[in-house]
Nucleic acid binder design. Structure first.
Length: 492
RNA sequence: CGGGAUGUGGCGUAGUCCGGUUAGCGCACACGGCUGGGGGCCGUGGGGUCACAGGUUCAAAUCCUGUCAUCCCGACCA
């Protein structure tokens, strides 16, 4: 397991924090619970966005944008929504500042500028969006509505952590409206599969697809589907959710349509989202003691070329070769940086690129000029090999997909090694405390049992996995009959 | 919101208990040189209202009071 990245022996959260900051992804902002996403981190986020956006569009969705502010009355309209997020909202109460009469150097809120109705800064956009859809939907001809929004939201969480839980975060939220229950359900399921595919194919992060228990379900949803990933410290991370909302929101916001038979019906709805938390998931899934490890498909720089030279003449001859390789790789769609900075020595560059997780490094020096070769180093295994210049481009191309695949396999093995089937509560507690990870156990299906287990162990039901074959058994806690194993874990 | 801790150049810190030279060190930074196949070396230099406000004192980074901020642990969550 990756630890002690920056020479100090600290706990995992310190390690994680240091890694995020030192690799240049992000840093804490002076604003409470917020972070600054630095260019390198944002570049990764943009790659995630681009891929997800493509997948949404391929399945018929469009992007739109809705207001940041939600009038309080609208927020109230969906009672369960208020239940879910009311505790953690930022609220705009005034619209003007003025010079403080007691201290001319300071500003104060102008008490005369109090808003008639407070504006909630969206913790999620259901309220504002459904209030808008109401006006868009009259007939079955207006359906389905398949809209996604890329936005920021604010939740006043008690304990923020870089990427995993920041006060303000970036996400996409899809909100769809359908004629039939079945269509909405299919939508929610399909999106969850898109999330899973994205996580596994692009992030190289294995996930378990499943359904949330009632306790963990989104307030206002009839069913919540999720993808759950396992981090290297043995804790689970919910990486994405997709909700079948039934007609709850349609009823709350009075969204009806006339069907083909001329009858008035409430629409069926879904909502779904993934957030900048995925960045945290990516970091915690693959990183090691030397820093980030990025899957090639999301790495802003896939290949870096480092020249090793003594004197300008040598640099010139290396540069010629390096630039030739660079342009050939770019033609193949590979992003390549030629790191010819004269301000750092090669060793320092190596360390820096490793910290930043660049998947492949090519080093070219005097020896290579002589032998017509280059030294290739892969970030995931930290191995080096000498490759003949003629085979280089082809080799790199193949190596990138190898690395992508290897990262997935490695993470998958880690996860498989950390799914433990338990048969008794003693075993449950022992595995949880000594080994961590996912625990597969029988559960009687009641909230009560789930809550008791959470109280005693901090572990929650992460999901009821889709593809677990139903096997009869006895609940690990209550001993009552159970039809299926579910996945428990401590979660972020 | 409860419990614990911490605020000293950009970062990490010593000094605080027991007040007393010019607030020390490492990294980073700048300049010069030697260097260059894994975080190089030597020399020189710049950078600090010691979180903020008030108080005690001949004297405060150090003691007292208050405020603010951050971090960790819990409950909450994408």
């Amino acid at each position: 397991m990756a630890k002690n990245l920056i020479t100090r022996e600290e706990d995992y959260s310190k390690w994680y924090n240091d890694l995020v900051v030192k690799s240049g992804l992000a840093e804490n902002s002076s604003v409470r619970g917020c972070m600054v996403i630095k260019p390198y981190g944002y570049a990764i986020w943009e790659k995630m966005q681009a891929q997800l956006d493509k997948m949404f569009k391929e399945t018929g969705h469009q992007n739109a944008y809705f207001p940041l502010f939600v009038p309080k009355s609208l927020f109230e309209a969906e009672e369960k929504n208020a239940e879910g997020f009311a505790k953690e909202c930022a609220i705009v109460t005034h619209y003007r500042l003025e010079t403080d009469p007691d201290n001319p150097k300071k500003l104060r809120v102008d008490p005369k500028a109090k808003l008639e109705e407070e504006l909630i800064i969206r913790p999620t956009s259901e309220a504002i969006i459904w209030n808008t859809y109401k006006n868009w939907i009259q007939s079955y001809r207006d359906l389905p509505i398949l809209i996604n929004q890329w936005a920021n939201v604010v939740r006043w969480e008690m304990r923020p952590r870089l990427f995993l839980r920041t006060t303000e975060f970036l996400w996409q939220e899809g909100h769809t409206a359908h004629q039939t229950e079945d269509e909405a359900m299919q939508e929610a399921l399909m999106i969850n599969s898109i999330y899973a595919e994205f996580a596994e194919k692009h992030m190289s992060m294995p996930v378990i697809q499943g359904i949330k228990s009632e306790n963990e379900r989104f307030a206002g949803a009839e069913e919540t589907f999720c993808i759950e990933a396992l981090m290297q410290d043995g804790k689970a991370l919910q990486a994405g959710t997709s909700h079948f909302l039934g007609q709850n929101f349609a009823k709350a916001f009075d969204v009806k349509f006339t069907n083909k038979e001329g009858k008035l019906n409430y629409v069926w709805a879904t909502s779904w989202g993934v957030s900048s938390r995925l960045m945290g998931a990516l970091i915690m899934t693959h990183s090691d003691d030397k820093g980030l490890v990025l899957p090639p498909k999301l790495a802003p720089i896939q290949v870096v070329i480092v020249p090793i030279y003594n004197g300008e003449q040598e640099l010139d001859s290396i540069s010629k070769i390096a630039e030739d390789i660079q342009s050939k790789l770019i033609k193949l769609g590979v992003s390549v940086k030629y790191d010819n900075r004269d301000t750092l020595r090669p060793g320092a560059k190596f360390a820096q690129h490793e910290l930043q997780g660049v998947p492949i490094r090519i080093a070219i020096g005097p020896k290579d000029l002589e032998n017509n070769s280059a030294e290739i180093s892969r970030r995931d295994l930290l191995t080096k090999e000498i490759i003949d210049m003629g085979d280089l481009v082809e080799h790199i191309d193949k190596l990138l997909s190898d690395i992508q695949e290897n990262l997935f396999k490695k993470a998958l093995k880690f996860r498989e090694d950390h799914i433990t089937q338990v048969e008794s509560f003693d075993e449950f507690e022992e595995v949880l405390n000594k080994k961590g990870g996912f625990i597969s156990a029988h559960w009687d299906g009641t909230n009560e049992t789930e809550n008791k287990i959470k109280e005693k162990t901090q572990a929650t039901i992460r999901c009821i996995p889709n593809n677990s074959s139903s096997s009869k058994g006895k609940c690990v806690y209550s001993g009552k009959p159970s039809n299926q194993r579910v996945i428990f874990a401590k979660a972020y």
